[in-house]
């Protein structure tokens, strides 16, 4: 299959464009998605190509963007609702949690809610406390809605297409820092990855690193350095989906390594790290040689000033330290 080396931004753009061409019911709504060309330029050129009917600029109305997407989806359209950044999804939270995630169940299957909420996520660039959230675990808390968070361009394309084609609501979180990063992406309009499947991004036998989103980048960097410097071989599992959560590759890896580090960009309490650690001790207690270590953002709001912002955040360096710790 032909592949092309493109950024995650372009991979997402291709996925959206192909799905809009494939299915007329797919349309985009959100703040600045059209004339402005998308806040992060993912929908660049769409307004010109598909027109205002299918690329709908909305008022600054997050409650109605999310809620109207739910209604349109129930009625038979397939909305891709952009929430600009995940920080503003807190205003949409009720429509997401109480309606998108509940309607199929509550009315016992009479309605489906086939929609995708797209949101840019992640810290960095001094966006400050209100604009630096990576709160995906909050959204993944609730049954009824899937949560996706790709770590590279290839996955982003295959996962977004899967999300759009699926009949369940999906929160699709896109890490801002990954938008410009390229990888090889199949040049195929039917390249669709399965929903809820983790992926081993690097094989190794000493320590299992579990991560997702931007954490995968830090984990792979740490694994590379540890291998080169210390001969430590880490296996890196990319969860890709926080819900459905596929831990089978993690258990399999752990049975081999007996040690685990979970790396995430989000806050430490009630986190993916907490969940993975709990599940591991339930599923593989007998294989455990060391306590599971968690690398995450510090448990503080993020400040503006660059130096202290960086202190609060995870990094490849912090992952390396944690790996050495679990090895004792």
């Amino acid at each position: 299959m032909a592949e092309k080396n493109i950024s995650m931004r372009d991979a997402l753009r291709d996925a959206l464009r192909e799905e809009m061409i494939r299915d007329e019911r797919v349309f985009i709504m959100g703040e600045e998605v059209g004339r402005w060309q998308g806040t992060h330029r993912v929908t660049r050129g769409f307004y010109e190509e598909f027109g205002a009917e299918r690329v709908r600029d909305t008022p600054i109305s997050e409650m109605a963007i999310a809620g109207a997407a739910v209604g349109a989806a129930m009625a038979g359209l397939r909305p891709v609702a952009e929430l600009m950044t995940i920080n503003f999804a807190f205003l949409s939270l009720d429509a997401m949690v109480n309606h998108a995630a509940k309607i199929h169940y509550m009315f016992n299957g009479q309605f489906t809610v086939p929609l995708v909420f797209r949101a840019a996520t992640g810290w960095g660039n001094q966006a400050t406390a209100t604009h630096s959230h990576t709160p995906e675990p909050i959204f993944a808390h609730f049954p009824g809605m899937y949560v996706a968070m790709p770590s590279n361009a290839r996955d982003a394309k295959g996962m977004l297409k899967a999300a759009i084609r699926d009949d369940n609501p999906v929160l699709f979180s896109e890490v801002i820092a990954l938008y410009p990063k390229p990888s090889l992406v199949p040049d195929d309009a039917d390249f669709v990855l399965p929903i809820g499947k983790s992926d081993v991004k690097r094989e190794g036998s000493d320590v299992t690193i579990v991560s997702f989103g931007r954490g995968v980048e830090w984990s792979l960097e740490a694994a590379k350095q540890l291998s080169e410097k210390d001969g430590i071989e880490c296996e890196v599992v990319d969860l890709r989906w926080l819900r459905p959560l596929d831990l089978d590759p993690v258990y399999e890896s752990f049975k081999k390594t007996n040690r685990c580090v979970v790396v995430e960009e989000s806050l430490p309490m009630y986190s993916v790290g907490s969940e993975v650690a709990a599940r591991l001790q339930e599923a593989a207690f007998d294989y455990m040689d060391a306590p599971v270590r968690r690398v995450s953002a510090m448990d503080v709001p993020l400040p503006f000033a660059r130096d202290i912002e960086l202190m609060a955040l995870p990094s490849a360096q912090k992952v390396m330290t944690a790996v050495r710790e679990v090895l004792g």
Binding site: I60, F88, L91, T128, A129, T130, F304, I308
Partner: peptide, 27 residues
């Protein structure tokens, strides 16, 4: 004014009854 934690979008001065700038639209 905010100790370097708020940045340009989050200026405030209690002494001036200036309750702040807020970056979540409408918040």
């Amino acid at each position: 004014v905010s100790g370097g934690k708020g940045g340009s979008m989050h200026l405030a001065s209690r002494a001036h009854n200036f309750w702040g700038g807020y970056a979540i639209v409408g918040g």
